[in-house]
Nucleic acid binder design. Structure first.
Length: 217
DNA sequence: GACCAGGCACATC
DNA sequence: GATGTGCATGGT
């Protein structure tokens, strides 16, 4: 079977096994974006505590973040790890929205996908995965998010070579399955779901429920 | 106590 | 272009 068909078959297999994931878990676009930054190389459980802190202090707004000292922000998101760095990243994003959209997040989310992607990639601390998560989950654009699980699962199942770049993986998936926001949303969420359960760094492939033999390349 | 988690920037070769 | 390192908490 050619690779693109296996990419689709993998999606169908995951969908049948786990059903809809309905991501992103957030009450607003801004909360979603905060989550995409806070979860960088971090377990979601630790992110939840940080977001809960921000919410209980009623801080989820562009204006409030703008007037919040970076040091205070870092304290509030402590549980998510890398808190000094992440506080700066959040500030960088807020400054971007203030500067380019007069603080109007809705205006940012409505911008053309390619232009917005380019602009977001220039924010220090916001890399390709975070940008694509913002585009897909906050702005509802049809963009596939590649993450560590995507790479790990696809390579262990022989669907991509060891050395495959972020953009190459993204292209492969976007050329294989229909360019549809809901499908990209579910596919990424499903890969994280099965990855958390069966595709950790070690041990390799323990109890993998998927139909492909991970050892055949 | 080691290893890992829904990355990213920066230095160095 | 590839490879190595710092960033840091909390769960297993």
């Amino acid at each position: 079977m050619i690779v693109s068909k296996r990419i689709v078959a993998l999606y169908n297999s995951l969908q049948g096994r786990y059903g809809p994931q309905n991501w992103w878990p957030a009450d607003s676009a801004l909360e979603c974006i905060l989550g995409t930054i806070l979860t960088q190389n971090t377990a979601w459980k630790n992110v939840e505590k940080a977001i809960k802190n921000l919410k209980s202090n009623d801080l989820i707004s562009i204006e409030k973040f703008d007037s919040l000292p970076t040091k205070r922000l870092a304290t509030l998101i402590r549980s998510s790890g890398y808190f000094n760095q992440k506080a700066i990243k959040i500030k960088n994003f807020i400054n971007f929205v203030k500067k380019d959209y007069r603080g109007d997040l809705g205006k940012m989310l409505d911008e053309d996908t390619d232009e917005l992607r380019e602009k977001l990639l220039h924010i220090k601390g916001i890399g390709p995965e975070t940008v694509d998560s913002i585009l897909l989950y906050a702005a509802k654009k049809p963009i596939f998010v590649v993450d560590a699980y995507t790479y790990r699962i696809l390579s262990r199942h022989g669907l991509i070579p060891e050395q495959t770049s972020y953009n190459e993986i993204q292209e492969l998936i976007m050329d294989s399955v229909p360019k549809d926001t809901q499908i990209y949303n579910e596919y990424h969420a499903l890969l994280v779901k099965v990855g958390k359960e069966h595709c950790r760094k070690k041990p390799l492939c323990e109890g993998c429920p998927l139909e492909y033999d991970p050892h055949t390349v």
